[in-house]
Design a binder for these strands. Structure first.
Lengths: 208, 208
DNA sequence: GTCTATATTAGGATAGAC
DNA sequence: GTCTATCCTAATATAGAC
């Protein structure tokens, strides 16, 4: 899994922003205040530029959103592509997807928040929401396969399992902080443990 | 050609809105488009009123948000008050809180979405976010007690357990539909099953 | 309680100089 | 690539008639 690295930092001074390094700052503003409440004035100030200078790099506010969403959606889709390419039991594919998705959630936290908070107020948003739904559908199909193979509990609907599982993973972005105490890899293990056997202690009657 | 008697009997199908019934519609708009992207013009149109008429019932857009947030926060706080008042093992209090919180999430879905999407752009938002954090802290303390009593797994930090559990419950609002196939009570059971013993099948080695 | 009309400000986006 | 100045629209909110 390559390329979870953060984009290269801005080149020393204020001048010489490229689109990538600007995007990091812009996404920060979007996440802080919400996309709709983020004015270009605020964005420009945070970048230390004028509004016009910002428009030299992006044709519109919507384009900023579009590029940011592409980044996280592309990575998540690749997680699925990779897992589905492997010849493994479905339950093992699920584990890999969850684990990798947690890592993406941590590495691209802000971009993921953006995706999760969309409302469908524009074509850009509607398009991204459709791609997000497709990811859930893919996970749902794998849960279905896992159930057929005896790897997932059969008393929970696969679609529901997929939604709850993504709900769990996605909830990380609410509180995860890159400079906090939680390591992404350890978080992935915790989430896996939760999905595998829940949060409460054994009661002596086995995992059901 | 004066249009003499255009004066409608003011029966637009919904005469006599009170604040409560207006709020239902307003929250719908807020959820649809996001609070910041919801204009009073849109709200007024959805209500079948003019903007001024809306201002007769609410002093500002922020007040609409404040009242809506109070509704869901009040109910969630009551869930905790009730559970904490009972003399029960902590793990049982957790079960009740989860179950009741799922019911609130379903019954007040739209109001909860509003709470979950706040950004802290105003005092109203900041205040509600603080109350939300306090709820998570309360759940964290009960997980701590459960662990001390041997009711929760000891390899997951109580604060993390609380956040993941709320993440799971809160994720319901993303897809739950009151007129859909899922019954709130059944959903509560599914979430409880997830929290108790995970999503995957037993592997013969017990719940850990 | 509801309307029309309007004040006022903020926001997205562009023009054109340097 | 960045700036200042500006256009135009839409947004919150108010005034005052009925």
């Amino acid at each position: 899994m390559a390329a979870l690295d953060v984009a290269p930092a801005a080149r020393r001074g204020r001048p010489g922003y490229d689109q990538n390094s600007m995007l990091e700052v812009i996404v920060e503003v979007f996440v802080d205040r919400g996309y709709d409440a983020s004015s270009l004035d605020t964005i420009a100030k945070r970048l230390g530029l004028s509004k016009s200078a910002v428009y030299h790099h992006f044709t519109s506010k919507a384009e900023m959103l579009e590029i940011a969403l592409e980044r996280v959606l592309g990575e998540l889709e690749r997680v699925f592509d990779d897992a589905e390419a492997l010849d493994l039991p479905a339950v093992e594919r699920i584990r890999r997807i969850i684990s990798e998705a947690v890592l993406v959630a941590c590495a691209r936290q802000q971009y993921l928040v953006l995706l999760l908070r969309l409302h469908g107020n524009s074509d850009v948003e509607l398009n991204a929401m459709a791609r997000r739904r497709e990811l859930t559908a893919r996970l749902s199909r794998i849960f279905e396969a896992a159930r057929a193979e005896g790897g997932a509990r059969d008393d929970i609907d696969p679609a529901l399992a997929a939604r709850l599982t993504f709900g769990l993973v996605n909830s990380l972005v609410e509180w995860y902080r890159p400079d906090g105490p939680d390591e992404p890899a350890a978080l992935a293990d915790t989430v896996l443990a939760f999905v595998r056997s829940g949060m409460l202690a054994a009661d002596g009657r086995g995992p059901r």
